[in-house]
C-alpha cells in the first residue's frame, strides 16, 4: 500500500504479536545467555556475576557429556530411519496399491497421539516378562524375559524405536504433498525413454524431493532436541542417565535441583547446537539442490 501512513498501520497491526513474541521468545533467549554467567539466586541471596564458572562446571560435569552423547545417538538413530521410512510410506500410499487408505491411516495415527500417551502404550510392550515383546519371545522362541528399559545398553535403542514410530507418519505427509506436485508428464517421458524405475527414482524424483528432505530433516533435528515427554513416563532418564536427553537434563537441573543458573548454561548449549545444525543443513542441502 502506497499511503504515507502505511508504516503507522503496519506497526499498529504488528505490535500485539511482536509484544508476545519478544516477551516469550526473544527476551528469554537473550536472558538465557545473560543468566548463564550468573549464580543461581537462593533465598535472600540474589544472583551474582560469576563469569564463566557455570561453563567450567559444565565441562567437568560427566552427566552433561553423557546427555549430549545420548542426544547425538538418539538423533543419529531417529532421523535417517524415520525419514527413509517416511519416503517409503509416501511412495506406497501415493501408488495404486490395494489397502493404501488403511495403510495411510495406520502410518499417520501415531502423529495425532500425545507423546505421553504413546509412551504409556509402549511401556506395556516393553514390560519384562509380561509385555508383548516378551510374550512373543517366550511364547514362540522360549527365550527368557528381558528388561529393555532397565538395561543401560538397550534403553536408548528402545526409545529410538518409539520416536521413529511417532514421527515417520508425520514426515510421510510432507513427502506425500511433494510427490503429488510432481507432474505426471515426467513419468510418461521416462517411460517413453525406457528409463528403469530405480533410475527414474534416483535421477528424477529424489532431486525433486530435495527441498522436502531439507524441510523434513530440519524439523527432525529440532524434534530430536525438543521431544522428551516419553522419558518422563518410561525411564525418568535412567538407568544411570542412559536415556536422558539434553532438554530433560535442563528440566531436571532447573525444576528438580533448582539450579537455574546452570540450567541457563545448558540451554545456551542447546540454542547453539540448534542454530549450528539448522544453518549447517541449509548449506549442505543448498549445494545439492543447486547441483542437480
Amino acid at each position: 500500500m502506497l499511503h504515507r501512513r502505511a508504516w503507522v498501520y503496519g506497526w499498529l497491526f504488528l505490535s500485539p504479536a511482536l509484544l508476545f513474541l519478544f516477551a516469550f521468545t526473544h527476551y528469554p533467549a537473550l536472558n538465557t545467555i545473560i543468566s548463564s554467567f550468573f549464580s543461581t539466586p537462593r533465598g535472600r541471596r540474589p544472583a551474582k556475576f560469576i563469569g564463566p564458572e557455570n561453563y567450567q562446571e559444565m565441562l567437568q560435569d560427566p552427566v552433561f557429556w553423557k546427555v549430549l552423547s545420548n542426544n547425538f545417538w538418539f538423533a543419529a538413530g531417529t532421523i535417517p530411519i524415520s525419514i527413509g521410512l517416511a519416503l517409503l510410506m509416501a511412495l506406497w500410499v501415493n501408488s495404486h496399491l490395494r489397502g493404501r487408505t488403511l495403510a495411510r491411516m495406520a502410518f499417520f495415527a501415531p502423529t495425532v497421539l500425545p507423546l505421553i500417551a504413546v509412551a504409556n502404550i509402549w511401556m506395556f510392550f516393553y514390560t519384562p516378562g509380561f509385555g508383548l515383546i516378551d510374550q512373543i519371545r517366550g511364547g514362540l522362541f522360549g527365550l527368557p524375559a528381558i528388561n529393555l528399559l532397565g538395561n543401560p545398553d538397550t534403553v536408548l535403542a528402545a526409545m529410538i524405536v518409539v520416536a521413529i514410530w511417532k514421527e515417520a507418519g508425520f514426515f510421510m505427509i510432507f513427502y506425500l504433498a511433494a510427490l503429488q506436485s510432481i507432474p505426471p508428464v515426467l513419468r510418461e517421458a521416462a517411460d517413453v525413454e525406457g528409463a528403469g524405475r530405480f533410475y527414474f527414482f534416483r535421477r528424477v524424483m529424489l532431486p525433486l524431493l530435495m527441498p522436502t528432505t531439507l524441510f523434513v530433516s530440519v524439523n527432525a533435528v529440532i524434534n530430536s532436541f525438543r521431544l522428551v515427554d516419553h522419558i518422563f513416563v518410561m525411564t525418568d532418564g535412567g538407568p544411570n542417565n542412559a536415556s536422558s536427553l539434553l532438554l530433560f537434563y535442563i528440566y531436571e537441573t532447573a525444576f528438580k535441583f533448582w539450579q537455574t543458573g546452570y540450567a541457563a548454561t545448558l540451554t545456551v548449549v542447546m540454542l547453539i547446537l540448534l542454530s549450528v545444525l539448522a544453518i549447517g543443513q541449509f548449506f549442505l542441502f543448498d549445494r545439492k539442490i543447486h547441483y542437480q
Binding site: 516469550f24 521468545t25 533467549a29 543468566s35 535442563i250 532447573a254 525444576f255 542447546m270
Partner: peptide
C-alpha cells in the same frame, strides 16, 4: 521462532 521455540526456553519463561 521456528528454530528457537518456547518449548526449550522453559527456565526463563518460568521466571517471567
Amino acid at each position: 521462532q521456528l528454530l528457537v521455540m518456547p518449548d526449550i526456553l522453559i527456565v526463563e519463561n518460568y521466571k517471567t
